[in-house]
Write a protein that binds this DNA or RNA. Sequence first.
DNA 1: CTGAAAGCGCTTACAG
DNA 2: CTGAAAGCGCTTACAG
Lengths: 337, 337
Amino acid sequence: MKSTIKDVARMANVSISTVSRVLNNPDIVAKDKRDNILDAIKQLNYTPNALARGLIHKRTQTLGVLIPDISNLFYAELIKGMEDAAHQSGNNLIICNTDNNQDRKNSSFKVLSEKQIDGIVLTSEPVYPDSYEMFKQLGVPIVLAATHSLEYEIPSVKVNDELAAFDAAEYLIRRGHRQIGMISGSMLDPISGLPRIQGFLRALRAHGIDLDPEKCIEHGNYHFNDGYEAMKRLHKKFPGMTAVFATSDERAIGCISYLHENKIKVPDDISVIGFDNTRIAGMSFPKLTAVAQPLHEMGQFVIRKLDRLINGESLEELRTYMAHWIVERETVCDLKK
Amino acid sequence: MKSTIKDVARMANVSISTVSRVLNNPDIVAKDKRDNILDAIKQLNYTPNALARGLIHKRTQTLGVLIPDISNLFYAELIKGMEDAAHQSGNNLIICNTDNNQDRKNSSFKVLSEKQIDGIVLTSEPVYPDSYEMFKQLGVPIVLAATHSLEYEIPSVKVNDELAAFDAAEYLIRRGHRQIGMISGSMLDPISGLPRIQGFLRALRAHGIDLDPEKCIEHGNYHFNDGYEAMKRLHKKFPGMTAVFATSDERAIGCISYLHENKIKVPDDISVIGFDNTRIAGMSFPKLTAVAQPLHEMGQFVIRKLDRLINGESLEELRTYMAHWIVERETVCDLKK
DNA sequence: CTGAAAGCGCTTACAG
DNA sequence: CTGAAAGCGCTTACAG
């Protein structure tokens, strides 16, 4: 059985108040008693019960994290950053995989609320009015990771997706490409779908490239296969293409796989640029050039922001947009005339 | 502010005992009161405080998981399985990233103990005598994932590494290869190092292949770069090699990367087989043939086993060895004479 | 400097 | 069927 503060008090011949004091404010108790108590603690292998403490302090040092899919490298790297920062600030993370399933999301919210977590981080999803209601009822600080809300005043940390896409497209253009395709998420996705498409199209316009969005953009999900299939469709409808911007690393690698299979050389025939720069970007063949998001840092920043909120400190900024950059590897080359 | 059982009792004009009853044993309270209480609960958006409950029941429905590196796909997929099973059994997971750092491991143990988790899962590491002492002091059930202990009676779930390596090697041999190299972890790693080497060598012996371990085995860490570097060394010291067994997918892909760079064709010049069959195996070029571990199922099984232990149920078996298999893709071919 | 008491939000015998 | 009381393991004024 786990020993309690009573056991320690008994062994050290003091009241539990005194034991509690050496735990929380040691200097205030007489040295001899303190030493006895410390001794008893050691002997009994006593460790304070965080439930009892939490009940009193209304603080559990536990944070909830809602994630669509932990087995996705993007989230795995993000979580790693969160874990590191949480550990530094003495917090633990309860990670709830939601599988993008509303029921599971609701039940996670409920349990996290019951467990009296001090704060919560939501990833990727847009904030709809009804989720906003849930947040308010939770009654704890919340911060958004890899998403944001323009309608509500919710702290967030992400990259500027429109700009990142703009930069990716412009990078290709600077390398001489004009017939540029895009493999993107859904237009209906207001976070990482539409903004990236807008950034892409803005870059084309800025450089006087007149391409029909219907022709140069294909949509698909985030995974390898989605990239593969999207590239198949794109290649059919846009044969003149010399470069393609795929808005996730996996998609980009799926797209390269299609090109390999069809004996189309990367980057000689078609250049490819990805998005995220997760670890797999460095493992593909050829190695993927990609727009990088600082995933680990984003994760850390999110937790620091949340911690500040929990401690009642103010935020320097509500919505943080972290810098992205381009990691040049081997899948983009200058367009040969 | 969050409402408590008192608020509900006040609003419904009953004692808190009665409120507690409708929460835990609704049939026992009179219908009219019950309805009133249910109403009050809804209106106040009341949700019971799990800390208070945990204090009484000595059960938190929270499990601790110690993981060396969540950003590693192997663990990410394993955790996904754990999360799914935990959700099914009404548990939450507190995941502690240990970075293979002893201090961080110790502090995680301490916090998990304070938070009164109901059970804990340890991944990958061998169980040393002093860690065993820590386990006992924790006083909660523990199960090992992707590792096991032959010295101690600790439940575990993993694959049979020796046999899996044997099968991998034999698979290559059946395809006509005899000059087979291995890229392995350390001999000093009793879990996924030595046993795999033993399995590999046993297969060679079984088929009358006489190869000097010093010559055909190279060691390195788990990552892409380690695989790359190990392959460089291996290729130098074992030029006749026609196939190589790399004991992680990342290593295998790093090794393929080295071969690409040196214009050595995979699989025509050298066949490669990996280990784990994480999602990246299907994304490499060529697609990686690999020994598969049922990571998701392992994760689920670990949690189910832990849950059973927590509920005082008995286990059918202490050490579970799950079946592995080989996923044939594109990196192994028959040896041409 | 230290102890007794109240209280955090619940559950569960014990009476009635 | 229901309420008052004790108790889970702590912390924190309040006295002394």
